Computed example of a mutant assay.
Amino acid sequence: MSSYSSSTLHQARGGKFKKAMVQYGIILAFIALCVVIAVAGEWAVATGLWTENYFLSQENTLIVLRQISINGILAIGMTFVIITAGVDLSVGSVLGLAGIVAARFATTSNSMAIGGNDWPLLMPIAVAVGIGLVCGFLNGIVLSKYRLQPFIVTMGMLSAARGLTLLTTDGNPVSQLRDNFRWLGNGYVLGIPVPVLIFVVLFAIAWFVLNKMTFGRYVYAVGGNEKSARTSGINVLRVKVIVYTLCGVLAAMAGIILTARTGSAQTSAGASYELDAIAAVVIGGTSMVGGIGTLRGTLFGVLIIGVMNNGLDLLGVQSYYQQIIKGALIVFAVMLDPSRKQQRD
């Protein structure tokens, strides 16, 4: 075999390896993280720090899944937004606003309830989703119609939504929530936490839209090259408005689950949640410059953050170090971004 043929074969094998790492690297990283934490747990048992390996227990698995459901729902919407080369910094504040208004329609407290305290379960859900829809729509229409930077527009919504959250209750939390509302955050169906089921259903719908529908192709086209997308007849304004509206609705749904899970609505709820959502999307391989990304990658990005937080908590690692590790993961993922874009092209 000639040296030219050997070199060509070597390059082909190298290309296949790189392609495989792009496609399955996030899955391997998740498996490796689970193995490392499980081994650390066994060490903790062997040294007498633990009586059993809690990380591997079924109870802890359900706890992790319940914990990641909120960030997972936020990350679904954030994936759509970032694929269009945008970003939504307001999801945490929209979550807090939707959650506290929903709580006022689900509380038994006469002083906090709006229009009585016997509303059906559908009412707080509908009101919260409506708030998320309006906030997301405003983000999308303003940044699209006036060609403004998503960073600036959504930062403005972040501030406005947080102010409205405080104004709604004069800075007071809302408690005494009805049992049927709290079931949305703490209930089980066939042994599976309700938040996890909601997340799975929303993820399946979003995956179908992004991968099987024409709108999904439009989302990638707008993120890949907005000018070319507009030239080819795609209504860029409509795509962006729908994407940001979807992100706002999902933030509201996450707010409902968080409020139901904690049993009260706090005015500070959702603070910095947008950072975890962005982190999950970026770690999952979605490019910040747009046009590249998958919901599968986002799913494993959410799992990596959730498992890492859970494992480090169980091992007694201080939250300060957890933030450092999370920041390093984000930077590392962004460093890989150019190679991923090159590989896709």
Rank of each mutant, 00 (worst) to 15 (best):
M123Y: 10
Y188V: 10
R66C: 05
L312K: 01
A277R: 01
I198E: 11
I324V: 15
M155T: 12
Y244E: 04
K240L: 06
K326V: 11
G316A: 04
V241I: 13
I76V: 12
G15R: 06
L190R: 06
I305Q: 04
V45K: 08
P150G: 08
L177V: 04
L9T: 13
A32F: 13
A279H: 11
G301F: 08
L9A: 15
V101Q: 04
Y54S: 11
F203M: 10
S339N: 06
S319N: 11
N172M: 12
I37E: 00
P120M: 05
Y24Q: 12
Y146R: 15
S272D: 09
A103Q: 00
V127K: 06
A113K: 02
A128M: 05
T298I: 03
G306I: 07
V189E: 08
I141G: 07
K341H: 06
G290L: 10
A206P: 08
N180M: 05
S272K: 09
S2I: 11
R66Y: 01
R104Q: 15
R296G: 15
L258C: 10
V127C: 10
S7G: 13
K240M: 05
V189D: 07
T262W: 03
L148R: 00
K227E: 15
L62M: 11
A40R: 04
L299A: 08
I27T: 10
G48I: 05
S232Q: 10
I26D: 02
R230F: 08
S287T: 00
Y218P: 02
Q342W: 12
V194P: 09
R261E: 12
D88F: 00
L158T: 11
I82D: 00
N110Q: 10
D313M: 14
A38G: 09
Q342D: 12
A269T: 15
A206F: 05
T298S: 04
S144E: 02
C34R: 02
T169S: 01
K18V: 14
I256F: 00
M213W: 13
Q67R: 14
Y273H: 09
A85D: 07
V134R: 08
T245R: 07
L184T: 09
